[in-house]
């Protein structure tokens, strides 16, 4: 059981990629991308977690108390906010594509054909 959070992170990563590959809608694709991205948050926070430890905030808690890793929390919190704006950019591109192609299905958009 002690590896469960890491396995959850790996599963989220792969399942998000599956959604991106099979997507029939660019909005759905953007949501799948956030699922993939969320796997990195689960992984980071799981790595920094310690049993019987507090948050790394020493207000009313003596310095030297057992606390979880502040670095991975800092990485996660900035990225949660930044990723929202990146998803917004993808959605704005989707609005633009719909205006020209009249569809949001990646399989029907000429420019997406490889």
């Amino acid at each position: 059981m002690s590896y469960l959070p890491y396995i959850v992170a790996a599963w989220l990563f792969v399942v998000g990629l599956y959604g991106i590959v099979t997507s029939r809608n660019l909005i759905h694709l953007a949501v799948c991308l956030t699922v993939t991205q969320s796997s990195t948050y689960v992984l980071l926070l799981a790595i920094g977690y310690k049993h019987r430890a507090t948050a790394p905030i020493f207000y009313g808690v003596p310095v030297g108390s057992r606390a979880v890793d502040p670095v991975v929390q800092a990485l996660t919190l900035t990225d949660v906010v930044v990723s929202v704006t990146v998803v917004a950019l993808i959605l704005a591109l989707t609005v633009d594509i719909h205006r020209d192609a009249k569809t949001v299905d990646p399989d029907e958009i000429e420019a997406f054909r490889g």
Binding site: Y3, L4, Y6, I47, Y49, P70, V71, V72
Partner: peptide, 12 residues
């Protein structure tokens, strides 16, 4: 990786 809950990173 170190087992969940047994973090060993020196930096944090």
């Amino acid at each position: 990786l170190p087992a969940f809950g047994h973090y060993q990173g020196a930096y944090g």
